[in-house]
């Protein structure tokens, strides 16, 4: 605990907690629209932004925000066109992004150009300025995801219905794409581009094993994200492990705990309630459950 007296550890903890809260709040919409791995792809693109920032001697995080946002817009345009070649276009973007990043970081010859810090996170080197960026952008993401929840839920759940409801579907989709880019870039400092998707997706995957509704899933996922971030930084500080990896492993550990608990609960309930209870109403054979 003594370690948390140092300002750099306090900054690390605050940054991790904010990202732990914001990443699942966005991630739930990505999971719902089957884009669970999009954060990973945008992370690859963000790496080119880091390289460009280092090369141009500008803030790598700021340039990464811009490049990742452009990448996210491109991905969203490919997705909304619904072309079969979308898969390949995404692959080009992802691998182009990471190759560009590695090349530009190498070219920059900058002493601070530690590629690992961006690939796997470097929570303990967050400056007060970085923290301000993370707090402000994290708050914006959280407010947007919570205030617009009914609309974003409708768009992610049933896009055609949302269109017939007169919702600004294209704008909302763009908002999710841009928010993903921003979340990826602020989380890059904490867990690194290669582990970002985990914080967006794993808490949602854990929560949805035991929840029945969207709102409760979102709340539970945010709580689990917060827990993974807090406990991960604590583990990192006490056991001197890599903070980003510790946070992600804590998220995965809580997934396993929830999965086992849910399975155990189901077995218990089945024993208590005999199988004869509440037979399902007969359905015509051609029914396909959505």
């Amino acid at each position: 605990m003594e370690l948390f007296q140092y300002p750099y550890m306090q900054r690390a903890l605050i940054a991790a907690l904010i990202i732990g809260l914001a990443a699942p709040a966005l991630g739930i919409y990505l999971v719902q629209r089957r884009l669970a791995l999009i954060g990973d792809g945008i992370g690859h693109v963000a790496l080119t932004g880091v390289g460009a920032g280092l090369l141009l001697n500008r803030s790598p995080v700021l340039v990464a925000v811009i490049v990742a946002t452009l990448g996210a817009i491109a991905i969203e345009l490919v997705r909304s066109r619904g072309r079969t070649s979308g898969d390949l276009a995404l692959a080009l973007l992802f691998y182009g992004g990471i190759a560009g990043g590695v090349m530009l970081v190498g070219l920059s010859h900058s002493p601070s150009a530690n590629l690992n810090a961006y690939l796997f996170g470097s929570l303990t080197t967050i400056s007060p300025g970085d923290l301000t960026t993370i707090v402000v952008l994290g708050a914006v993401i959280l407010v947007a995801m919570l205030v617009l929840r009914p609309a974003l839920f409708a768009v992610s759940h049933d896009e055609e219905y949302a269109r017939v409801s007169g919702l600004p579907v294209r704008t909302l989709n763009m908002l999710i794409a841009i928010t993903t880019a921003v979340t990826v870039t602020i989380a890059m400092r904490a867990v690194g581009v290669l582990l970002i998707s985990a914080l967006m997706v794993v808490p949602v995957a854990s929560a949805q094993q035991v929840t029945r509704g969207f709102r409760t899933t979102m709340t539970a996922a945010m709580a689990l994200g917060l827990f993974a971030a807090g406990s991960g930084v604590w583990v990192a500080a006490t056991a001197d492990t890599a903070p980003g990896a510790s946070v992600v492993l804590m998220a995965i550990a809580s997934f396993l705990v929830v999965a086992l608990a849910a399975a155990g609960w189901r077995v218990l309930r089945r024993r208590r309630v005999p199988a004869a209870a509440a037979p399902a109403a007969p359905e015509p054979h051609e029914v396909v459950l959505g």
Binding site: I28, P150, A162, S165, R212
Partner: peptide
């Protein structure tokens, strides 16, 4: 629509789905 899409598996309650009808 003809049927409800499965989505990515994030659960939603009946009430939450019906409430989306108020957005318009």
């Amino acid at each position: 629509p003809q049927r409800l899409g499965a989505g990515g598996g994030v659960p939603a309650t009946v009430r939450e789905v019906v409430a989306a009808g108020r957005l318009a």
